[in-house]
Amino acid sequence: MSTTPPTDSEKYALQVQGLRITLPGTARNVLDGVDLTVAAGETVALVGESGSGKTLTSRSALGLLPPGALTEGRVDVVGEDVLDISAERLRALRTGTVAMIFQDPRAAINPLRRIGDFLVEGVTLTGSVNQADATARAGELLQDVGVDPSVLRKYPSQVSGGMLQRVMIAAALMGDPSLLLADEPTTALDVTTQAEVVALLIRLQQCFATGLLFVTHDLDLAATISDRVYVMYAGRIAESGPADELFARPRHPYTAALLASTPRPDAPAGRLAAIDGRPPDLRTTLTGCAFAARCPLATEVCEQRQPDLRPAPDRPGHRAACHHTEQLTRSSADA
């Protein structure tokens, strides 16, 4: 074990800097200057609606980009820029350093092969581990995720969705990853199963000290499980900060509106505070703030100038990209 303090780039499991992605046939950048970090052992949630760029951001860590994508910026995984490495290094990265848990395990796991084969193929293909060791490790990991190792011999169609998602989590841990990407891993599951899978993810993440990037559309879920939250809107980070602060005192009108429009079983009955309109289309260009057209606080400046992501005066870790963020903190303090 080295005793020297980790360098800046090694400290982060994932460090995205100024990431811009352009796709053919769109009028603006799909990702427009995204900065995001996940420290080793940290749980970070990335929240956004469809088309916000959250999935694209998380997949960039695996170098998985849509065809024809042009990129700018850096995506460092444990100090290595995945946008600028050899195919061989990328392959090694994907089988070991970074692992991904997808939303729908039935779509992500080959239905024609046994679960055991699915678990061991990644690590045995690269030749780093032999078949017997890999199978033994797969059995251990299945026990860790609360699945009986007899499942190794079964086919995906023979187990339930919740169990298959746990198999996927075990598969993600096979290569001892430094960074775990979970893209809506519980969206397809029932609420009680969701709680179980989340409990498992958190326990494993703590036990293996893995950096976890949890992509979700559910702000309440994000706030309860993560250390820090990033909120994305139209390819940009709208707000980022410690989960409890962002939840209690949102500094971006979009975050505040999302919180207000979430139906909750313990809230008083009545209408929801819905956000009118919908996110801007990729065929339109944006001159100012992407949320201006739907924002109750918007003024002329919002349509003309894109706001920078700025820290709160008293809380440097809590950043928001809004020209009128002071107005928001004042009004929520009054209420």
């Binding site: 609420v191 009680t192 969701q194 709680a195 179980e196 989340v198 409990a199 498992l200 958190i202 326990r203 559910d218 309440d220 879920l221 706030a223 309860t224 499980i225 409890d244 939840f247 909750r264 079983p265 313990d266």
Partner: peptide
């Protein structure tokens, strides 16, 4: 009801 994520949510206890 307990399974719905909210502040103070404890997924391990629900499981």
């Amino acid at each position: 009801m307990d399974s719905v994520p909210r502040p103070g949510w404890d997924p391990a206890r629900i499981a």
